[in-house]
């Protein structure tokens, strides 16, 4: 069981953003939250990503409680945010290198993984460039690559519609992102698309 929530609630003052939802996501599943604007999808994903404390109910990620083991859970998640939020002061490969260190990987592990991911995201020839001038699709690919730097057990991605557009649809990072990583890597990758 990757994610299990019972009566999960999130309130901001009087406003109820998430009103007692029950969810279970198992290994190997690709799970998505659908709903109109303001339905509480992002609030739920933020709680699952351990960057927002639950107001009520029970939430377990990998069987652990985010309120107690937040850093340990985040170490095993690959979070792909709605906005790219790349580090524009750094180069493409430096973005991957430093992100790996945030996860506690060694320098050698990070460099090796970054080289693989740059190749996977077809950004190898841009690795020494600053992030700022990259195209929107390239930035998105780098964001996705960055979210996989720690070889995550689960990759929550917000807003699947922010994937590369029609031109990128044929790209390996298009619709088949999690499957692609699974093929490259015999271990499990479970996608959770919000």
């Amino acid at each position: 069981m990757l994610v299990s929530a019972r009566g999960l609630t999130k309130t901001f003052g009087d406003f109820v953003a998430v009103d007692g939802i029950d969810v279970e996501v198992r290994r190997g599943e690709a799970f998505g939250f659908l709903g109109p604007n303001g339905a509480g999808k992002s609030s739920t994903m933020r709680m699952i990503g351990c960057v927002s404390p639950a107001t009520g109910g029970e939430l377990r990620i990998f069987g652990q409680d985010p309120a107690v083991d937040g850093p340990a859970i985040r170490a095993r998640l690959g979070s792909c945010p709605q906005a790219d939020m790349l580090d524009e002061e750094l180069t493409v490969q430096e973005n991957l290198w430093i992100y790996g260190r945030y996860f506690g990987l060694t320098k050698a592990q990070t460099r090796k993984r970054a080289t693989e991911l740059l190749d996977f995201a077809q950004l190898t020839d841009r690795r020494g460039d600053k992030v700022e001038p990259l195209s929107g699709g390239m930035k998105r690919r780098l964001t996705i690559a960055r979210s996989l730097i720690n070889n995550p057990r689960t990759a929550p991605a917000r807003r699947a519609d922010h994937r590369p557009g029609p031109a990128g649809a044929a790209h390996p990072l298009g619709p088949a992102l999690p499957a692609q990583t699974s093929r490259r890597d015999p271990h499990h990758h479970d996608a959770l698309h919000g």
Binding site: R74, A75, P81, A83, M85, Y99
Partner: peptide, 14 residues
């Protein structure tokens, strides 16, 4: 603007 801390907080960093 850069939302740098948001992306750091998605990792084990607190």
């Amino acid at each position: 603007y850069a939302k740098l801390y948001d992306s750091m907080l998605a990792t084990p960093l607190g």
